[in-house]
Every structure is written in structure tokens, then in C-alpha cells.
Nucleic acid binder design. Structure first.
Lengths: 213, 213
DNA sequence: ATATCATTTAACCAAATGATTAAATAAATA
DNA sequence: TATTTATTTAATCATTTGGTTAAATGATAT
């Protein structure tokens, strides 16, 4: 019982719900508003998804997967670590740029999501934790002497924190530095460079001799 | 017309409201719940604060100021930059540990807070942006050759990102790495060390000769 | 043409929500 | 003691919210 009309409507609802949930969170989103956003009446929302909880869970799952995507292509490309790191940062920043609304939602709903969030974490337990491919890649780099000895988990937290924070702080940055747009090419190109450079060579004076590739 | 009884009640309400707003956000918080948390009846909430919006704005302001405190003591201490940086990281992490609930709330409500958030940002415009003491300290360090040339703003974003991210990701970390407690002494001591080391010397192989102070 | 599913409208439901009210009592102050 | 302010209770209010209903119409498949 799948036809293009029905599937189109369902997708339309999901897309609308996504927009509203990302903006308002679950608590702040209204079913009537989602219906309006999707261009349908509210009864149809319930026809397709029954309850707000169900709709929310479906949307949450999509968003969760999108945010915690493991970026497998570059993880499998077997690049030297410095090239790998540069590409990781670039792709990660670009992904955040394409979906700037997600970061605020993700962390808030991690806290608020209760069972829903717990379910998604459980579903992705291994790939987020013990079998995290990024963890493994870093561990390999340490063992192979590509980078000095670091704690892989802490290293990941550092990289991700540096990539994500400007997007979280964007509402402030755009107001107090009026010429700065976190989503602009300039800012992100600079961001990519500063992150990589900081990670690779640190800031101690005298660490500046690195040749650009 | 300020007496200890009244002020006590007002503070009690504010403290309760803070706990509930931090946990549920503005949208999810209920006046009846706040009243219960404060051990009063709901009518008194309105007697003191009139509306949910007003109560929220007062609480938001407190929390905002707390989160964006400029840590003036160490900024004024005129330490060498590496010592300064170590202390900044330590104090910042400790501050986050004392108020782990704030981070999720702050960034979500930056997005959701609308006029309220805008007002607070405007109020703190200069100290967050153009006159940011941390920006100045970094700029001075660059000019004095204490550290290599970096973009001060990007550098701040990196430091803050690295400090804040584990707290944001805590709901995940605690589930997928069951032995890890972000708020524990061990984790934070390690975090402090890894952040400083990464910032100071980077990860390129061969950057490992730094003596511990 | 018939049957089934998708969609709409408008009204309705039950519960929850922020807020108010009236009256009484408790506490603080002069 | 008298007055004023703080606090309580229980009920109420108006509105909103997620969800339901009945009937009709539109779209699709056979």
C-alpha cells in the first residue's frame, strides 16, 4: 500500500514536523502548527502518525542518525592521518553548515528526550562507543606513530567540540560580531584552518614551521 | 519594603524556578510544578512574579550571567600565558562541573529565547564581543610572542568548545562508556591535561618534549 | 461502475495550562 | 492593638492542546 501520493504526503508531514521540531523542540511544537507547515489539516496528522509522540520519535530518529553519521567514506579511505584529519574537519564542518539547526536541538533533546533519546543511543550503542570507527582510526594512528600518544576519546571530544561550538554559539557571535557569519565560506574556511593548525602543531611559540600541503 | 521573610520566599521561588527551567526549558516547565518545587501554592507565584514570562526572564538573566562570567581574577593576575591557559581551563571546567545543567539550557534557550535572549546579549554586548577580556589577553599574548600567531576569536571558540563539549555530550558518554563519568575527578583531571597539551603542543609526532611544570 | 483509501471540514472532547478570584488566616510592622 | 503585607485554599476562568468524530468528497485501483 505504497503509492507516490501517500508516500508524498507522509514525507511532506515528516519534513514539516522536522522543521517545526528543530525550531521549537518537542515541548514547544504544536500539532496544528506542523499541520499548517505541511499544508494539511490536523486530522490527517493523526491519520498518518496517530500521536505527537510517534511523530516525534520518527523525526528524532532521522535527526539523530543524521547528526551521528560516522562519515564512513573518509574513514575507509586509508589516508595518512594528517590528510584524514583535514578532511574530517572539512566534511564535518560542511555537514554542520548544511544543517545548522540540528546542533541546538540534538543536545537539548538529549537532555529532554527521555526514553526516545535513550532508545536511539541504545540502538547506536556500539558504533557510538566501543566500536566507534573514529576511535579506532585514532588508536591506529597512535600505534603507528602517525601522531603522538593521545587519549583517543579525549581527542575526539576535542575535535568535535571545536567543530560544533561555533554553530552552538552562533546566535551570540552573529550579534556581537556583526560582520561574522558562522555559515559563510570565509568563516568556515578560516575555521577549518585554525582547527587543523591548532590540533596539529599547537600554539607554543616556535611551532610555526609547517609547510602547507 | 524588603524583609527577610519576603526575600526568602522570593529567593526560594527563583531557586525552584531555576531548577525546573534548567530541566524542562521554558516550554516544558509548568507553573504548578515550580510552585510545588518551591513549596508554595501557585497563586503566590503570580503574587510575586505575575507571569511565567517575567519569572522566566529573571531566571534566564541569572543563568546567562553565570554562564558567561568573564573569570576576571585570573584575567587580571598577569600570569605567563601557559600558566594562564592552564588555570583558565581548570577553572572553566570546574565551573561547568558545578553547574552541569546549564550548558544544555543555555544553548537551547539561545535559540528559543527570542527577545529574552536578545536582551541579555545586548546587555552584555561589549564584554562578549568587542571588549571581551579573553580576546584581549590572547591578543596580547600573540603580540608579546608568548604564543604563535593565532586568530584570537577562533582560538577562544576552540578552547570553549573543548571544555564544553563533554558536558553537552554527557548523556551519550555516560551510556556508551559506562565507566566514564564526565563529572568525576578522574575524567576532569584528564580532560584538563589533554586540552592543555593539545593546545600547547598539538599532536604532530615529535611534539612530546615538554617538561611538566 | 464499484470499492477502497486519502483527504477535508467543522465541530467536538477531555484535559491541561497560565492566570485570577474571594475569603480567610498568618505574619510582620508601627 | 491596629494595620498592612504575605500566604493559603479552593474554585474558577479563558484559552490552548492533542486528539476524535461524522460525513462528505477526492483519488486511485480493479
Amino acid at each position: 500500500m505504497i503509492n507516490s501520493g501517500t508516500e508524498n504526503t507522509e514525507q511532506r508531514i515528516l519534513a514539516a514536523a522536522r522543521r517545526v521540531f528543530l525550531q521549537k523542540g518537542k515541548d514547544g511544537a504544536r500539532m496544528q502548527e506542523i499541520a499548517q507547515e505541511a499544508g494539511i489539516n490536523q486530522a490527517l496528522l493523526h491519520y498518518y502518525f496517530r500521536t505527537k509522540d510517534r511523530l516525534y520519535e520518527m523525526v528524532y530518529r532521522q535527526i539523530f542518525d543524521q547528526f551521528f553519521q560516522p562519515l564512513m567514506p573518509i574513514l575507509e579511505a586509508d589516508l595518512p592521518f594528517d590528510r584524514f584529519l583535514q578532511q574530517f574537519i572539512e566534511i564535518y564542518l560542511e555537514s554542520l553548515r548544511k544543517n545548522p539547526d540540528i546542533v541546538h536541538f540534538i543536545f537539548w533533546e538529549l537532555r529532554r528526550g527521555g526514553k526516545v533519546a535513550a532508545r536511539q543511543i541504545r540502538r547506536r550503542f556500539r558504533s557510538l562507543g566501543p566500536d566507534n570507527p573514529l576511535l579506532k582510526r585514532i588508536h591506529r594512528a597512535v600505534e603507528a606513530g602517525e601522531i603522538r600518544r593521545v587519549d583517543p576519546l579525549h581527542f575526539i571530544l576535542s575535535i568535535l567540540g571545536m567543530c560544533i561550538y561555533p554553530f552552538l554559539a552562533r546566535p551570540i557571535i552573529s550579534r556581537v560580531f556583526s560582520e561574522l557569519d558562522v555559515l559563510s565560506d570565509e568563516f568556515l574556511a578560516r575555521r577549518k584552518k585554525e582547527i587543523f593548525q591548532l590540533i596539529w602543531e599547537g600554539i607554543a611559540p616556535g611551532n610555526e614551521n609547517m609547510e602547507e600541503k
